[in-house]
Every structure is written in C-alpha cells, then in structure tokens.
C-alpha cells in the first residue's frame, strides 16, 4: 500500500508543480502582445496601467525570473488582480468554489447510484430485452450533448411544468443542473458496472454462493455487487474530475454561481490573471480530491492494503 500511496502522492505533487509552471508562462504563449489583448476590451486604460500590469505579470523579465516572481506571489497567497475591476483573484474564485464542488459531488452521487443500478440490471438480465433497452439508453446518454440536455430539462421542468426554478441557489435549484451533469457519467458508470458484473457472475465463488442455497438477495448484494463494484469505485477519482470539467458548461446553462461561469467570462474577456487563477485552483482541487478518493479506495481494498501494488 505504501508504494501505491507514494506513487499517487508523487504524481499529485508533480501535477501541481507542472501546473504552476504552465500557468505562470501562459501569457507568454499568447500570439501577439498579451498586454494589448488584455486591455483591448477595457476602454480608457492608460499606458501606466498597462506597464504596471506588464511588470506585475513579470512580462518585462526573462522566463525564469517571471516564474519565480509568480511562484513567490502565489506562496504569499497573492494570485493577482482582475483586469476589469481590479479585484483580488483568489477570494473571487474561492467564493465560487463551494458552489461548484456542491454541484459536482451531488452529480457524482446521482451518476453513481443511477449507473450502478442500470449496469447491474443490464448484466443480471443478460440477453433479454431489458439489457438491450438499458444498453441502448447508455449509448444515448453518451451521445446527447450535456448543454442540449440541460436546455431541454430547463424548458420542460423549469418553464412548462414549473417544478424547479430556472436559476438560483439552494437544493431546489440544484436538481436540474445535477441531473444534467450526471447523465453522461451515469451512462459511463453503467457500462463499466455491466461489464464488471458480467465477469463476476461467471466466477467460481458465485456458483458456490448459489449452491449453498443462500437467498437470492444475499447472493446478489453481498457476493456479486460487492465484487463487481471494485472497478467502479476505483474509477471514482477520474469520474469526479470529469464532473468538475462538465460543471463548467452546466453552470453556464443554469446561471449557477460557480467557478465555471466565472472562467468562461474570464476567457471571453481575456482576463488573464483570472484565467490563471482559475486553472490553478481547478487543477489543485481536482488533484487533491482524486488523491483523497484513491487513498480511501486503497484503504478499503485489502489487495492494496496488504502490500500489493496495483
């Protein structure tokens, strides 16, 4: 288990470090003059303001000096100020972060429950029309664009039926965005569960369980499901990362007050300090939570806990 954890921890550290480099030097890669592009949309920016921003971003120095300037500021908790409004970036993002986390984790729970149920029944009813219907619905789930699904749900359940608010905060407003975000991943988890369950159903210990005369529910839940869920649970970290990514689009549709809406606006306005802050916070959060989920998984799986390396 130690070697597994060490390796995971090493990758996490490496990722965060690479992110700081990529983010610090992001403005260098912009074709043209980044300062002019940044201020193109804010009329009346003075020459002094532009020069101040250039110095602030370290664009007047060489690459190495720029990186250490940026890193030094980061370590002091200074993520810079936005071009428009001149607000400090970090508090702006941190204020939105909980909303995004809330959305992504709710969607992950919905996707896992729906996906596992779906995949389990598809495997259990192998070769029947039930499996066909369920598997066809997963292909649909993967094919439908989340942004379109969101708009349709909003139109039907928000406008026509009026069951859920069209925008806002709180758990009532969370339902439609979370379902939209969960749909694709429910389909993916469903397919994963099905193939894993199909393998489990053919195992020796399943025949033993049946022949012992255990009740059907015990065999299916205690023996089959527990074994079949291993690959699903081990993919939780990856699934969470995808939820965070998908949240960006879903937040935009539902005017959800999260990090994603902020990021899309920042990219459209080419507000580089804000974009830099977003990328950094986003990847640190994704890396930390994926790491946490992997550690929990490793602690639960005896094969990893007792010294094996996956």
């Amino acid at each position: 288990m130690q070697s597994f954890l060490l390796r995971r921890f090493g990758v996490a550290l490496l990722t965060v470090w690479v992110t700081t480099i990529a983010v610090a030097l992001l403005t260098r890669l912009v074709p043209g003059d980044p300062i002019e592009i940044m201020f193109a949309q804010s009329a009346g920016a003075t020459r002094e303001q532009m020069l101040a921003m250039q110095a602030r971003l370290g664009l007047d120095r060489n690459v190495v000096a720029q990186y250490f300037l940026y890193l030094g500021n980061l370590l002091q908790g200074d993520f810079g100020r936005t071009i428009q409004g001149g607000q400090p970036v970090l508090p702006l993002i941190m204020q939105r972060l909980p909303n995004t986390l809330w959305l992504a984790s709710t969607a992950l729970v919905i996707a896992s429950i729906a996906g596992v149920t779906l995949g389990f029944f598809a495997a259990y009813k192998k070769g029947t029309w039930v499996e066909h219907v369920l598997m066809t619905s997963t292909v649909m789930g993967i094919s439908i664009p989340p942004f379109w699904l969101g708009l349709i749900l909003l139109m039907v359940f928000g406008m026509q039926l009026g069951w859920f608010p069209v925008a806002g905060a709180g758990w009532h407003a969370l339902v439609l965005p979370a379902v939209t975000l969960a749909a694709t991943n429910a389909a993916i988890i469903g397919r994963l569960t099905r193939s894993s369950m199909l393998e489990v159903f053919e195992q020796e210990f399943m025949r033993t369980a049946w022949s012992k005369g255990l009740p059907k529910t015990t065999v299916l839940s205690r023996h089959a499901l527990r074994a079949g869920l291993v690959p699903v649970v081990s993919a939780m970290g990856v699934q969470f990362a995808y939820m965070m990514g998908g949240a960006i689009v879903v937040e935009y549709i539902f005017s959800w007050n999260g990090m994603g809406t902020l990021a899309v606006d920042a990219i459209l306005r080419r507000d580089y300090p804000l974009i830099q802050g977003f990328i950094l916070v986003f990847s640190v959060v994704v890396v930390c939570i994926s790491l946490l989920l992997d550690v929990i998984y490793a602690a639960l799986d005896p094969r990893i806990r007792q010294g094996g390396d996956s």
């Binding site: 990758v11 996490a12 990722t15 992001l26 965070m244 990514g245 960006i248 974009i275 994704v286």
Partner: peptide, 11 residues
C-alpha cells in the same frame, strides 16, 4: 490525465 481534457481545451 489529472488536468482533465476540458481544462486543457479551455487553457
């Protein structure tokens, strides 16, 4: 892979 595709595309 830990960056996720959407973040790379957005960047």
């Amino acid at each position: 892979f830990s960056f996720t595709e959407i973040l790379i595309a957005l960047a």
